[in-house]
Nucleic acid binder design. Sequence first.
RNA 1: GGCCCGUUCGUCUAGAGGCCUAGGACGCCGCCCUCUCACGGCGGUAGCACGAGUUCGAAUCUCGUACGGGCUACCA
Length: 482
Amino acid sequence: MTVRVRIAPSPTGNLHIGTARTAVFNWLYARRHGGQFILRIEDTDQERSKPEYTQNILKGLQWLGLNFDEGPFFQTQRLERYQAAVQQLLDHGHAYYCYVSEAELETLREAQKARGEAPRYDNRHRNLTPEQRAEFEAQGRRPVIRFKIEEPQEISWRDLVRGSVTWNSRDLGGDLVIARSAEAGVPGQPLYNLAVVVDDIDMGITQVIRGEDHVGNTPKQILLYQALGAKLPEFAHTPLILNAEGRKLSKRDGVTSISDFQALGFLPEALLNYMVLLGWSPPDAEELFTLSKAASQFDFERVNSAGARFDWTRLDWINSQYLHALAPAELADRLIPVWQAAGYGLDPVAERAWLEGIAALVGPSLARLPEAVAMASYLFVPEVELDAEAVAQLQQPGAQAALRALSESLAEFPELSAEAAGAWINRVTKAQGVKKGLVMRSLRAALTGAVHGPDLLQSAALLHQRGWLMQRLQQHLAPSAV
RNA sequence: GGCCCGUUCGUCUAGAGGCCUAGGACGCCGCCCUCUCACGGCGGUAGCACGAGUUCGAAUCUCGUACGGGCUACCA
């Protein structure tokens, strides 16, 4: 049987990293087994679902390169299917109308709590007579539809991640609401557990791969599969991504959506690599891998069952590794939009070589793309302001003389490559009889406005290419200094 | 409260009874490289939650305890 898996986000928020990680596991599993990966948008909560969230989810998956083979399917376009399933359950005596009001349920739960019992629906409307139903209808009460959960009974499954999991139906909270009460003229909307099961059956899903927070839904869904006479899929409940406090990562934790990570300057391949590592480990113990390599090795045997804390430091390291491995041309492609967004005037076509030079210069120091803005700022403006340390450097004994000598001998190096810049500095060092460090630190301060930064020789060469080198040198030559 | 699940360096993890004097990676610390900051290289630091049991032998199996998490809607 061919593998068919799915990711089923609800468009009630941006694509969350937890959802994306589940998507990756599904995608990897599908690729590993030559199966299909399906996208389904679970938008039955019409109050909270928004089209812009659907767009965000689609964009996020695309950015990550998690292409799906079928879909997106929308649950709101499948309402007849759910109604048919509900009707089937009703017809077969697996479901019934329940008229208990929310207030009555609340009272019930409070009483149970007061007695120290677990809150649950007591199935009180399971066997209503036609007269009782008529009475409630006459009162104008709108029923929900509940699915009968026979108690007690053991429900267990072999989870691909956690092994055998067993549940007793007594702990499921009583008969399950599968359709909301109808509004005037509008039939009751189907609820999550019903819709999921109907969809997974219709779409021929063979493995349900989802987060651990869904384990409690699984026994309910298994019962629904059985009542609908369908074959059970396999289940895999993956560990959760945790925040620094060890709790499930939620929107409240700040940066959690894929679009946020994109905006922060992470590369999709790095983020993917990191997400996969949060719970799965490759058999060869290599930390850095491509998705397609992971797909050739992916296996639930190697998925952890414990939750994993999200670690920014490690993500940064992985991102830096990907950034450092990029060729200057590729890096420039990613950096140019970032520089443009920062307001640097540049011509991506005419200045291509120069821009690639900058990319090559800052590349090895980068952990996130936007760092290249501040790091290369002195290469995008004709004049720089000195920071306090740079000012101090230029006041060092001999600094001004060195700069003067540098500017005077610059003409001897018309094609100032990084290598030639080295010769240039050596010549001045010798002529001045000072330490090379003094010359270089002073030159750095004058050219970049700071005492720390990327490689000085390359910087000088780049500034020279741009035609700013001499000007930059003289900008910081105090007329009175000797 | 109830149910389910989990627990190896600070963090992510390897480990399926002897290969473990518990391995790798991030971080951190030190050294090297170096005009600087990074990068890179080398080295160091640090862990099997606890207690019983099974066994010749347990990080690995069993039970209990503790701690942590998830779920407990007419949300998904």
